[in-house]
Structures are given as structure tokens and as C-alpha cells.
């Protein structure tokens, strides 16, 4: 194992190490508060654990696989959990570069809903690859259909949620469509929270 600095990116080489060693070394490396950290691992279990650990700590995570090696890149720019206790909520949201999405339909775009149903799937698959991942995805009106058991994008939603994206689903809308029992991902929210997210973000995107 070596631990070298390249520009502002610390590289942690965990090749040949089995779990939980890579995640233990990742924790030690993150305790030094690097700008970014690339962890190199050679097995899927270590890749998953390092990604889970970083996500839980508020880091943005992107993973690149080449020839059985995984480069797990952790970005502190998206790290809310790492901010000091003295920072106020406003300062926190002002430094947060992660976008906030307000999705108001279960299809994407105007025109053909058949086409829109295809586009929304492609949207979520692509969203998983973006860096940083969104801070929050909010679902209103028929958008709430994206978070129920029959959702065509449920697995993407669940992965986003697992990677730290906050998924908020409009409670009034769930009631209207009688979908509350079927909610499969995210938490129920109200208009006040939705507005707070929108006005508190520098990068609010409405679809």
C-alpha cells in the first residue's frame, strides 16, 4: 500500500487488500481531510464498501473500472458532512454545488408522452453517472409515480437514494393519486420543505 500526493488528489492504493482493510484505510485517509481521494481496489466488495462509506460521509463518488481494477474517486467539494460545526445552514447550502431537481411529471418533456416515458428512463440512467450527484430530487404531481413500486426507474431511484441523494415525495400528490401505500423509495414531504430546498439552492432545476 502506498499513499502519495498528486496535485491535490491523494491516491490510496488498496490493491491486494480484502475487506474491511480498504474501508479502514479510506477512513484514515479521509480523516486528513484531503480535497479529493482516489482509492484503488481490485475487488468488487472493496469497491462497494468504499463507495458506501464515502457516500455516508457526504462525499461525491465516481467509479472507473479498468482491467479488474476499480478507481473510486471521492470528491470533498460535495461533502456536507465534513463542514465544520460552526458553519450556518445558509453557508452550507451556499457552498453546496450539488443540483436540486424538481420533477413534476412521470415523463420527460412536452409533446409525446410515449417518447417522454422513454426519455425519463434514459434521464435517470444518465443521472447516475453525473458528478456531483444531485443533492435532492423532489417529485410532485404525476412525478410521484416515479417513486412507487411500479416505477420504471425504481432501481435508479433506489441507487440514487443509496448513494446519498435525498428523495422527497409530495404527500398531497401521493394522496391524490392514492399511492401512499405503494411508495417504494424516498420520504414524504410537504410544500414548505420543497420551497425551502428550491430557494436554498444555487442550482435548482425544474423538469
Amino acid at each position: 500500500m502506498s499513499n502519495e500526493k498528486e496535485q491535490n488528489n491523494t491516491i490510496l492504493d488498496c490493491r491486494g487488500l480484502a475487506c474491511p482493510q480498504p474501508v479502514i484505510l479510506t477512513k484514515k485517509a479521509l480523516d486528513q481531510l484531503p480535497e479529493s481521494l482516489t482509492v484503488i481496489v481490485d475487488n468488487a466488495a472493496a469497491k462497494e464498501n468504499v463507495a458506501k462509506f464515502a457516500t455516508a460521509g457526504g462525499y461525491g463518488v465516481s467509479i472507473e473500472e479498468t482491467g479488474g481494477l476499480y478507481q473510486v474517486r471521492l470528491l470533498a467539494g460535495t461533502n456536507v458532512g465534513r463542514a465544520t460545526a460552526s458553519m450556518t445552514a445558509t453557508e452550507l447550502s451556499a457552498t453546496d454545488e450539488r443540483p436540486v431537481f424538481l420533477i413534476s411529471k412521470d415523463t420527460l418533456g412536452q409533446g409525446s408522452d410515449t417518447l417522454g416515458a422513454i426519455l425519463i428512463k434514459s434521464f435517470f440512467v444518465s443521472l447516475l453517472e453525473t458528478n456531483p450527484l444531485p443533492k435532492t430530487i423532489m417529485l410532485i404531481n404525476s412525478g410521484v409515480y416515479l417513486a412507487v413500486q411500479e416505477s420504471p426507474v425504481l432501481s435508479a431511484m433506489q441507487e440514487l437514494s443509496g448513494r446519498g441523494v435525498n428523495i422527497l415525495v409530495c404527500g398531497t400528490c401521493l394522496d391524490y393519486f392514492e399511492l401512499k401505500e405503494k411508495l417504494a423509495v424516498g420520504s414524504v414531504t410537504n410544500m414548505y420543505s420543497i420551497l425551502s430546498e428550491l430557494t436554498g439552492s444555487r442550482r435548482a432545476i425544474t423538469l
Partner: peptide
Amino acid sequence: MGLVPAGAYANREYLKMISFDS
């Protein structure tokens, strides 16, 4: 937080016949 032992992943890999509700 990913504090999951390698054995848990090995078990998951072997037990592919188990299905989970979403």
C-alpha cells in the same frame, strides 16, 4: 457505511437464487 465483511459479499454472490422485494 460500508463496514461490510468480504464474507457477506461472497455469501451474496453464492446465494443468487434468493429474491428480494424492492
